[in-house]
Design a protein around this nucleic acid. Structure first.
Lengths: 390, 390
DNA sequence: TTGAAAGCGTTACCAC
DNA sequence: GTGGTAACGCTTTCAA
């Protein structure tokens, strides 16, 4: 059997209580007792039983981090930022380090809920939800309920790169928007929606996706582009909607709007989607001189499609991305993007999760983007576009 | 206070033992009792107390994953592979899902040891160590001791992308190699080394770094290159050494070896290092027609340096990478690399951690690389290289 | 400053 | 099939 507190206590000739106090450093202990205990710990190679101490103390050292995909650098960088604060390498004592339980939800609301329960079960000290949210009212209601449960259980909740939980606004047939009381769940049953006042209000670090997308579109417009395609992310996601709104706002401000949905193709947040989407844009809008992509990965796919179609970036078509992931700007040619400070955001989320940093006033802090203009954008070609080679 | 087993038992009119049995599904329970219990669980929104059950059952649902850097896709992809198996999305029951505790060690042996203790403390069911190891004998000894402790505590240990723990071979002054008994630790004290027979033998999925590097070098040689520079990773790491050995083996087999260390620059595994290293190679070896980089990230840095020096890839200088990370091949121009099946390796490591898959015979499975020849390599230029532009 | 002892919420063994 | 009841190893009053 493993070495226990009692073994250490016996060896040091003190009580278990004293050993506990030495190890936790919460109570005063005589220097000599203290060193005797520490020696016993060394000699016996004692390692605290985490579950036992979590049970007794009703807390744990675990912090849950929900991500869409841990293999995606967007989330990896955020997770790295979180870790930099919850487990600082220079922590004087290993006890100062929380452990990050990283959960890959694949963007699925069901997985998100499952993991929240799993984390609540572990009595995680905090839960950090990263990236955009799904906008389905039923899921939002379920999520709000799960988060409320978690908060009631004493865990902190932090949203990172995700807007605050929104009140259940539902559009009725007439297009009127109002606060709904119920909605129809995925299983066809009626689901009660939380009233705005009942929503949990977790600390929230929201990305300014609207602003970033708007800045990118304005950049393209200022270069002289008039026919700009947009490769949007999956529908029903806040990230997708906000970026698209920002993009359209810029078009409208420039008098370029000609109906909703125009020159927009929806897809996923991955490279293949960018490739397919760009091909579709080229087919449907032959006059296009620029493509704004939902993110860098999508933009790279779009670049590949353009290359394949015999079009040069940016001489024939300009392309913009979003997020500024490490490798992306390297891709041919250097990508113009809206940089999101992912690591810093993760770090702040970590501090909020620890309770070291106070939540921003109102609970929400908006994290801005920075426009990075690079070689993937240029003024539109003046002459007609060369014929496609395929 | 939170809802407990006893509350559920009271509500269902059964004993706590029965509730436990229903929830764990280990013992037969009458159907009617069962549904009564499940209803009570629903009604009370009961969530098991993980620490309590870990304490009682002496196991936990946590699996530790040690990575150099969670923001690096190399590790993110491996971690994703692990998760795909330890927490399958189609698990019929959330209890079938283990949680991954991802720990970023920054490649530091001290951090590695700290995290191993932290994970042992959590009574993690398994620990997966990913990526190359540091070769310092004192650290190897400490690591071996830590792993032995963990195994004795009942946790599985899996090495993924890391060679097996090596016996403490030390080279003495005369260059003779033998098994040493002690070495000098970082604090100057003498450290006992484990004898080969005492080493823990965790399940191990080793990457064929030698083979991959050798294949890349052979590819360059077959194209006609004779002056090939090498951008090595940090010294003292198995990954660095093995890749370099494979590279040199190819040069030797082709009669191109002219002394150890020639045309080799050491650095880190990052882009800046590739940039700096390539500049140094160009300075020291003006006749170079190819550069083999330790990995894709380093290769991208090298490409940037070449571009800046007015040299084209591959017309003037060919470049190779390693690992085949998603974005890398996209970087201008498409990179020739040795592809490592990172996701698959992680998935296998996950199965080994669960104990679902038996360790390979001998404990070690070697995972091969696949040569991906792309546009970054071509025959060397025939004429003299154009003068540098700076 | 230290010790004794009562929980913390499960699990698992032993009866019934 | 089900209930009673020791563990499990720690934290934290309460006394001394």
């Amino acid at each position: 059997m493993a070495v226990t507190l009692a073994d250490v206590a016996a060896r040091a000739g003190v009580s278990a209580a004293t050993v506990s106090r030495v190890l936790n450093g919460n109570y005063p202990v005589a220097g000599t007792t203290r060193s005797r205990v520490l020696r016993a710990v060394e000699e016996l190679e004692y390692v605290v039983n985490g579950p036992a101490s979590s049970l007794a103390a009703a807390t744990s050292d675990l912090i849950g981090v929900l991500v869409n995909d841990i293999a995606d650098p967007f989330f990896g960088i955020i997770a790295g930022g979180v870790q930099s604060r919850i487990a600082p390498v220079d922590a004087p004592d290993p006890r100062g380090r929380k452990l990050a339980v990283v959960c890959t939800t694949g963007g699925s609301p069901e997985q998100e809920l499952t993991y929240l329960t799993l984390l609540q079960r572990q009595r995680a000290a905090a839960v950090i939800l990263t990236g955009g949210a799904v906008e389905d009212p039923a899921h939002q209601a379920a999520l709000a309920a799960a988060l409320r449960r978690i908060e009631r259980a004493g865990a902190r909740v932090v949203l990172c790169g995700r807007p605050p939980l929104s009140p259940p606004v539902v559009e009725d047939e007439g297009g009127a928007r109002g606060e709904a009381a119920t909605t129809i769940g995925p299983d066809g049953t009626e689901v009660a929606l939380p009233r705005a006042a009942d929503l949990p209000r977790p600390a929230c670090l929201a990305f300014d996706n609207r602003g970033g997308a708007r800045a990118l579109a304005e950049h393209l417009i200022s270069l002289g582009h008039r026919e700009i395609g947009y490769l949007a992310g999956p529908a029903e996601r806040t990230t997708t909607r906000h970026r698209l709104e920002g993009h359209r706002a810029a078009l409208e401000a420039a008098g370029l709007a000609d109906g909703a949905g125009d020159r927009v193709v929806h897809g996923r947040f991955d490279r293949d989607s960018g490739y397919e989407g760009a091909r579709e844009l080229l087919r449907r809008f032959p006059g296009l001189t620029a493509i704004a992509a939902a993110n860098d990965t999508v933009a790279l796919g779009a670049c590949a499609a353009l290359r394949e179609a015999g079009l040069r970036v940016p001489e024939d078509v300009s392309v913009t991305g979003f997020d500024d992931l490490p490798f992306a700007a390297e891709a041919a040619p250097a990508l113009t993007t809206a940089r999101l400070p992912l690591h810093e955001a993760g770090a702040r989320a970590g501090l909020l999760a620890l309770g070291v940093e106070e939540p921003p006033p109102g609970g929400v802090a908006v994290i801005g983007t920075e426009l990075r203009v690079r070689a993937s954008t240029a003024p539109p070609p003046s002459g007609p576009r060369p014929a496609r080679t395929d």
